[in-house]
């Protein structure tokens, strides 16, 4: 796309070589980013070495105490484990789910464009609506899911989807996957549509099975997009806070307390801001590798297009 600039590039080079204007225009956003992202990020590091229980009194430096506290806190280690489990299952289900949905929507049917646009609804809805919706649908006494399961004779008594220790994690994972699957399926669908139908027809004439068509025609085309989906899905899943919090508040007991929930609870329920900062830093270091991979990809992609 950026190649369009080429024919006039020399003239453009002269015309747009205006550093003063450029810096002037970028200044408002740059200021905002520095003040509300970069400065706070450095503060997270700084605060992680202080004991901060009240805001307004001077913070006490405590060295590495917060890090010791966090790394020795069994509920922090459990939160790490839950975050790993949550992320792994979410990413897997979202990749498989979005691929299935994309393949379904790639068929020829009436109202295709309309349905393709609106299938993304779960992603459009505010999280609080998603939480209210699923709490209602899965409610043990009034929810439609338990009602149907009992009336079909599949269940003797209602399942406490969001209140029982063994069900709560699978249920929240399902709801989060439900929310993100359509989003990723739309991305995959766009990739699927770049494949020419003739390829499948030719393969069918040559006697290739459906599986082989998928394996040798579809998969090679969508493989790079699948890796984008996997990377995005990973980064977003790991950081999910609101969906879990609004559904369960990290409970029952601590069964859905993943890392973001742990940090939030430390800071805004226990008012241990120093410990919360230390936990944030540990979480960030754990994610560093995947963040770097993600950014390199994003930078390469953007600069290929000739910034």
């Amino acid at each position: 796309m950026g190649k369009k600039l080429k024919p006039t590039q020399n003239f453009a080079e002269i015309v747009f070589n205006d550093p003063v204007l450029g810096i002037l225009l970028v200044l408002p956003l740059l200021f905002w980013v520095l003040a509300t992202i970069i400065y706070p990020l450095f503060n997270t590091i700084y605060f992680s070495f202080f004991n901060i229980r009240y805001i307004g009194v001077p913070f006490q430096p405590v060295g590495l105490t917060n890090y010791k506290y966090v790394l020795q806190d069994p509920s922090f280690l459990l939160a790490c484990g839950r975050s790993a489990l949550w992320t792994l299952i979410n990413v897997t289900l979202q990749i498989v789910g979005s691929l299935v949905v994309a393949l379904i929507l790639n068929q020829n049917f009436r109202g295709r464009d309309f349905i393709r646009n609106w299938v993304i609804l779960p992603w459009v809805l505010p999280t609080v609506v998603v939480a209210i919706m699923w709490k209602w649908i899965l409610d043990p006494t009034h929810g439609v899911v338990n009602y149907l399961l009992i009336n079909l004779g599949l269940l003797a008594e209602p399942i406490q989807f969001l209140a029982s220790p063994q069900w709560v994690m699978p249920t929240t994972i399902f709801i989060n996957t439900w929310r993100w699957t359509p989003y990723f399926s739309i991305i995959l669908l766009a990739a699927l549509q770049t494949i020419q139908r003739e390829l499948y027809e030719a393969a069918a004439i040559d006697g290739a099975s459906t599986w082989n068509q998928f394996r040798y025609i579809t998969l090679p085309v969508i493989a790079p997009v699948l890796s984008v989906v996997a990377l995005n899905s990973f980064l977003w899943s790991v950081n999910i806070f609101d969906t879990i919090w609004l559904l369960t508040r990290g409970g029952p007991i601590d069964y859905t307390t993943t890392l973001p929930i742990y940090i939030y609870k430390k800071a805004f329920q226990e008012f241990r801001f120093g410990e919360a900062s230390a936990a944030s830093i540990v979480m960030f270091l754990g994610l560093l590798l995947i963040v770097v991979v993600y950014l390199r990809r994003l930078f390469r992609e953007s600069e290929e297009e000739g910034l």
């Binding site: 706070p40 503060n43 901060i52 980064l235 973001p260 960030f284």
Partner: peptide, 18 residues
Amino acid sequence: LSSYVFPKVLILVPLYIM
């Protein structure tokens, strides 16, 4: 571009304090 990627929960505490 990168400000989009980092975990938002990371700056919740410092932003609140600020």
